[in-house]
Amino acid sequence: MSLNTQVGTWLDIGPVDQISPGNARTLPVRGGEEIAIFHTQDNQFYALVNKCPHKQGPLSQGIVHGSVVACPLHNWNISLKTGKALGNDEGCVPTIPLKVEAGRIFLLREAVIPVPTEAKAA
């Protein structure tokens, strides 16, 4: 989804056609969390930290349906819009503000570097 209202520095990730509709690709970040960028079948783009809130499954490898991805490890459904686990599961993964301009994908730099890591269990 295009969050044009965000202010900050935008990173150019390259042309939109690098990701075919219904698929996702990954963007490792040195010193930060890997990001998954999704292209849905209705042509929206979303970016999320590539870690399922359940057990860190790589969301980029899940089945995308609507604006939801089903995690490949245990099938939690995660909203691409909010990062929240849907249904009866609870948890949330950080989303990264993304905009598409002139056929290119941009991510909000402040959200990419460094992505806050969740607190580890005691």
Binding site: L11, I13, G14, Q18, I19, S20, N23, R25, T26, L27, P28, V29, R30, G31, G32, I35, I37, V112, I113, P114
Partner: peptide
Amino acid sequence: AELHQHLAEVRPMEII
């Protein structure tokens, strides 16, 4: 091939 490749890699200056 794209299923196996990362889109890109972010290497922030301050971290390098």
